[in-house]
């Protein structure tokens, strides 16, 4: 890639839109994942009884649906990102590529 090409792409508003949209989505989702995971770990470290509480009358504790939910959240977040990226971000990338041709 030549220096001119880099400058041209960098000054393309679509490139700037792509970078800022992707960055904000990527970091937001990362922070959500980290907060969810470390909240879980810190509850276990400091107040495990919170997760040991019973759900209703049976033996199943709050911790079990919470744990399973974190697995689903991890999967769902990757789904959100892939859906956004494979449509919106890839469209923008394609437009940027087309413009330099």
């Amino acid at each position: 890639m030549t220096h001119e090409m880099v400058e041209q792409i960098k000054n393309n508003p679509k490139y700037q839109e792509l970078v800022s949209k992707r960055n904000s989505l990527a970091w937001t989702l990362s922070i959500i994942m980290l907060v969810v995971y470390y909240a879980f770990i810190l509850v276990i470290a400091f107040d495990p009884s919170l997760l040991g509480g019973k759900m209703g009358s049976g033996v199943i504790t709050v911790g079990i649906p919470v744990g399973i939910a974190i697995i689903f959240i991890a999967f769902a977040l990757t789904g959100v990102y892939v859906k956004k990226a494979n449509s919106e971000f890839d469209d923008l990338t394609k437009q940027i590529k087309d413009e330099i041709k």
């Binding site: 994942m33 995971y37 770990i41 991890a74």
Partner: peptide, 24 residues
Amino acid sequence: GYDGLIYSIGFLVGWPIILFLVSE
């Protein structure tokens, strides 16, 4: 019992971060 699930979750949560920040 439950402690096994805590470990499993620890193994899993790195993956979304790899996707968001590193993979592409």
